[in-house]
Design a protein around this nucleic acid. Structure first.
Length: 223
DNA sequence: TTCCAGGCAATAC
DNA sequence: GTATTGCATGGA
């Protein structure tokens, strides 16, 4: 399977649906096109409260990369508006920085992220993740390394890899599962990894496509 | 008032 | 190994 740019997924491409595509592949591509047409590009991951539509060059700086990681942890089971308020507080304290987070008094950090909910747990998670991040020294983490960090589960790990590091790994969330269940493409007992594999097997490994697809699924889930 | 959001770890069975 | 429970704010 060749790498296909985002623009390739247009209705004209679907009209030329070819016999080498599997049924699942066709279904997923059709789903993607339907969502993209309905909601338009989503511009994820938002950086500094800014959605960069059709610009897949982010993160542009190390600070932006780390901000995505922080946001991915803060948004666990929490609405993004609450996370934005927590990030706002953190920016005012110059806390979008792994060394600052590692060294700052945990109570101050906790206080800053109160709007994000689960603040005691998340403060601890940010501390632990920051130490891990510092040790990386800029190296791209392996998925298993991320999963071994306390507080980082499969969705957070994949979000970090996909949006902070542009690694084409598909992010599965509650909306994704619900949607595929409705489409009868999976059973209720499908594991996270099996759902992730379903997308990765049937779509080109294109980080732009995965970034947009996951964001569109979330947007659709909100409706 | 109740329910749930861009999950995860700990505990129970 | 799978099912349940605690974590917590803010908006609908």
């Amino acid at each position: 399977m060749t790498l296909v740019p985002l623009h390739f997924y247009t209705s004209s491409y679907l009209n030329k649906f070819n016999r080498y595509d599997s049924k699942k592949m066709y279904t997923l591509k059709k789903l993607y096109n339907r969502l993209l047409k309905k909601y338009g590009p989503q511009g994820w991951w938002p950086i500094n409260n800014n959605y960069h539509l059709k610009d897949y060059s982010y993160p542009k700086t190390k600070k932006q990369r780390f901000e995505i990681c922080v946001g991915a942890i803060l948004t666990q089971n929490t609405s993004w508006t609450n996370v934005e308020n927590a990030l706002l507080n953190m920016r005012q304290l110059y806390l979008i920085d792994p060394i600052k987070i590692k060294n700052i008094n945990e109570n101050i950090l906790t206080n800053a992220i109160i709007p994000a909910g689960y603040f005691n747990q998340k403060a601890k998670k940010l501390k632990i993740f920051s130490e891990f991040y510092i040790i990386l020294k800029g190296r791209i983490p392996m998925r298993n390394e991320l999963l071994n960090v306390w507080g980082i589960g499969p969705e957070t790990a994949d979000s970090i890899l996909l949006y902070a590091y542009k690694i084409p790994t598909f992010v599965v969330d509650a909306y994704t599962r619900r949607m595929l269940l409705d489409m009868k493409m999976i059973n209720t007992d499908a594991t996270y990894d099996s759902i992730k594999f379903l997308f990765e097997k049937n779509l080109p490994k294109d980080y732009k496509l995965y970034q947009e697809f996951h964001a569109l699924i979330v947007e659709n889930g909100k409706h």
